[in-house]
Simulated scan of single mutants.
Amino acid sequence: MPTASTPQAQAPPRALPRARAATVALTALAPAAWGTTYVVTTELLPPGHPLFAGLMRALPAGLLGLALTRVLPRGDWWWKAAVLGALNIGALFPLLFLAAERLPGGVAATLSAAQPLLVAALAIAVLGDRPTAWRWTWGVLGVAGVGLVVLGPAARLDTVGVLAGLGGTAAMAAGVVLTKNWGRPAGVGPLTLAGWQLTAGGLLLLPLTLAVEGVPRIDAGAAAGYLWLGSMGGLIAYTLWFRGIAALPVGASAPLVLLSPLVAAVIGTVMGESLSLPQTLGFVLALAAMLAAQLDPPKNRRGRRTAR
């Protein structure tokens, strides 16, 4: 038994129960799908139309969700769905596409990897949830790992692109925390919530898109890109994401977004890019940070959680 002058030994983090592990795996499919956004944007979509790209990703998918569920918001959920749709969709999508157009994928990915830290900070103010030193540490290491994977000496910084990336990251971080805080109305499933938010965000983008950008020329490749982003990257991904946010602690769901830049890096290797030794180490570090965040913090022998 440790004395007052000796440090207390710590047990290793506890393993995930099977049900929670399955929830984590399903939730992780969402950021994995979002990791394809950069390559789809640069390879298939017409350049210079971030608002239109956001609109096509959101509104058709949202209307399909409403058609499938046939449930509309009630009471204060009209304004809550509008706020969440503005943050998670209306602000995030165009800023994401703008950052993808103006920044190298590595810089944009590193900015998005900071989201778990923003979520942790907002959770203190909104949810009264104080993340442990365990989660703070792995959050920082996750950003560092992503930075090693995607940032190179020739990384080009564009002021508008950086601001767009940070703005999109902050908007989604706020959306994650508010989604966790407000939950879902009784009897409303994640597909319905996804449909509400995608529709609200799409309706917000519609007049802006028509006034600022108009409609670009859409070829077969662009049509396929919009279809992928609206289905797997839109309605399906957000349904899984909102289901996961409701079921998992906010400190466990937020780090899953690290999968997005890691999937983008894997796609790059498939397209002929190679990973250096520092990039490989960064990949392993980011993956370890994401997995470690899913575990409960270690306990000392007296059963108390450490470093809250």
Rank of each mutant, 00 (worst) to 15 (best):
P2T: 14
G167K: 03
P185V: 10
T36P: 07
G282M: 14
M1N: 06
V126S: 05
L92S: 07
L203T: 01
G251F: 05
G147N: 06
G214P: 08
A155R: 00
A288T: 02
G168K: 01
L141R: 00
G147K: 06
A254E: 10
G54V: 01
L16S: 12
A61T: 05
L285N: 08
G128W: 03
K80L: 07
I89P: 02
G165Y: 07
T42P: 00
L64Q: 01
P7G: 04
L26Q: 03
L248G: 04
P207F: 09
A113C: 11
M232P: 00
A154S: 12
V149P: 03
P190G: 11
R102I: 10
L84H: 13
G225V: 10
L178P: 06
L205K: 10
A81H: 06
E213D: 06
T27C: 10
V212K: 11
T3N: 05
D129N: 04
A144C: 11
T36K: 02
A120N: 05
A247Q: 14
M1K: 02
P185G: 07
A211Y: 05
G230D: 13
P255F: 07
A222C: 13
T27D: 05
V160F: 02
T110D: 04
G175M: 08
A174M: 14
S274M: 02
K80D: 08
A224T: 03
G165T: 03
L235C: 13
T110F: 01
P7I: 12
W77L: 11
V263L: 13
A171N: 04
V150W: 00
G85T: 02
Q197N: 14
A19C: 02
R184C: 10
A200W: 09
N300V: 07
L258Q: 12
L66D: 11
R57D: 09
L103N: 09
L191V: 12
A293F: 00
T306G: 07
A121D: 01
R135S: 04
W196I: 09
G214S: 09
P261K: 10
L127G: 10
N300E: 15
Y226A: 06
V284T: 09
G62I: 05
S276L: 04
R302K: 10
L291T: 00
L163Q: 06
